[in-house]
Design a protein around this nucleic acid. Sequence first.
DNA 1: TCATATAGGGATAAATTATTCCCCTATTGT
DNA 2: ACAATAGGGGAATAATTTATCCCTATATGA
Lengths: 125, 125
Amino acid sequence: MYERKITPNLNCGLDLIGEVLYGKWKIRLLWFIHTGHKRPSELQRKIPDASRRVLNIQLKELEEHELVTRKIYPVVPPKVEYSLTEFGKTVIPVIAALGQWGDEHEERLRDVILKHIVGSDLDIS
Amino acid sequence: MYERKITPNLNCGLDLIGEVLYGKWKIRLLWFIHTGHKRPSELQRKIPDASRRVLNIQLKELEEHELVTRKIYPVVPPKVEYSLTEFGKTVIPVIAALGQWGDEHEERLRDVILKHIVGSDLDIS
DNA sequence: TCATATAGGGATAAATTATTCCCCTATTGT
DNA sequence: ACAATAGGGGAATAATTTATCCCTATATGA
């Protein structure tokens, strides 16, 4: 496990939410769990660009931060289900607000982002 | 300048907002500019944990993404002021929602975060 | 017997992000 | 002459985060 070398700031609300929501896929994980996709394999299919490994790691962090719970069914083949905790549910409206802003300004965002990516293999469609 | 090797996803609103808002200090920069701290040196004093360098870099990215404008006064010593664009202003309510959630759940967040930091030199006060 | 699906972990490499250090301009104050 | 302040940039390195690859286990279906 990675051990942080720089102590994080936990001064204000923005620092705090950052600590639990940063991570490339965490917001999407929360969202998909919210919309009923509870099993790890479902989540992996929903987010195919993420490696299986990171999703597991980020799910574990979400669990440690008490935003989701993990229920293991003692069957074989194994079955696991994630659910939002009551605490986790309170962050959903915030995520919805993020997504809504992104959707509302989709065209403009796509435009300014693509304009400033130096990369090569963009599919500008 | 760093050239990305992995093409970002720009599928949904969450991807898009992530592209412009990710970056350790961007949200705070937008917020402080919003609250009237416009000059680089002010922002650096407001965010002392960030190196001067990153703030410049992230400010430039915010400018490229058209969330802020940079006005240079041709005086000496130099004077520069950042302002939110109309587009940038539309993201402020979203940032406010993030901060508000963090503030509302401050204690619990601090608790679960500190519980799972492996580090050593925490000032748990 | 072999592939698939289920869930997950360890080790390592690569990608990305942030920090540190040192540099430049010009003016004002000591 | 020298330091401080204003704004900024290049290069190298450190820190952090993700990705890749390979491994475990059991059961079912071809």
